[in-house]
Amino acid sequence: MPLTIATWNINSVRLRIESVARFVEAYRPDILCLQETKCMDGQFPLADLRKMGFDHIAIHGQKGYHGVAIASRYAFRDPERKPFFGKEDARHISVVLADGPATGTRIHNFYIPAGGDEPDPAINPKFAHKLGFLDEMEAWDGLKVGDAGNRSILVGDLNIAPYEHDVWSSKQLKGVVSHTPLERRRLIEVAKAGQWVDMMRELTPEPEKLYTWWSYRSPDWAAANKGRRLDHVWVSPTLGPAMRGFEIVKDARSWERPSDHAPVIATLDL
């Protein structure tokens, strides 16, 4: 049976709940992982998501900032909200599916810090936070998925475009946070340490361009197409043979009051 899982940095779930409903009606994902929900748990629009068919919802919210959520048509268990880098900001949530074709699969939803503007941890605390966050991800046993019986999926806005063709111009962006050589190397090391498979690049190898984010600053983002692949889908090696495809829903970037990220839908045949 196929499992579809969508990941989307929604940039305020309450502000864009109509866009969420439009997306869900059109694409009907089994699981929807949101980042940058920007609301406390008590303010999360649970009723709206339930009307969309998601009876099972796990949230990790924060007032005005960050925030992640997993909405599922299938029951789940063992929700976990892990803090990173000594902070209590809401950047991770995971669950284990307890029903459906992916029963027993752990779903991780991450929102890695953006890192500010200056790629120097000595003068930019936000960049130091980002690097420390990656260090802790690499060291966390919960993200070591190489065991033959491990079924795990990691999605989210990882705020790094690791490969040359994950950005519109690797040469021009090499000094820009999200595509600096240090960040690129560290994210790839995190994936390798856990033995994760980068599903999007496994199915669509370099040098094909892949973008999931386009800046609000561009007056005509579609024509310029100066994008970056900041949103990712990783799977454990056990699930590698189940990978069937993915779609970047670029049209959503042009909807009314859009997020600067497009949703990504991954399909696995389980």
Rank of each mutant, 00 (worst) to 15 (best):
K126G: 10
D120S: 09
R106Q: 10
K126C: 10
F133E: 00
F84S: 02
A90M: 01
A102G: 03
G146M: 02
D135C: 01
A71K: 12
Q62I: 07
R91D: 11
D89K: 04
E136N: 06
R77E: 14
D135F: 02
E80Y: 08
I93E: 03
L134V: 07
G86F: 05
F110P: 12
A75P: 11
V68Q: 11
P79C: 12
H60P: 12
N109M: 11
Y111W: 15
L143H: 04
A114G: 05
T103M: 11
R81P: 02
F84D: 09
Y65S: 13
G132H: 01
K130F: 15
A98N: 03
D135L: 00
I107K: 04
E136V: 08
L143C: 03
S72E: 08
A139T: 01
G146C: 07
T105R: 05
F133A: 09
V68C: 13
M137N: 03
D120I: 05
A114E: 13
D99H: 06
H66P: 03
E138F: 04
R106F: 08
A114M: 12
I123L: 07
P119Q: 07
G149K: 09
L131G: 10
L97T: 02
R77M: 15
Y74C: 15
T103D: 11
G64K: 03
L143E: 01
G146T: 01
L131P: 07
P119R: 07
S94Y: 00
K130C: 08
I123G: 07
K126Q: 13
K130W: 01
L97V: 08
F84A: 10
E138N: 00
A122L: 13
G67R: 07
A71N: 12
K87G: 11
R106W: 04
D120M: 11
E80K: 04
G64A: 11
R151V: 09
I123Q: 08
K126E: 14
G61F: 08
A90T: 05
V95K: 02
A102C: 06
Y111R: 15
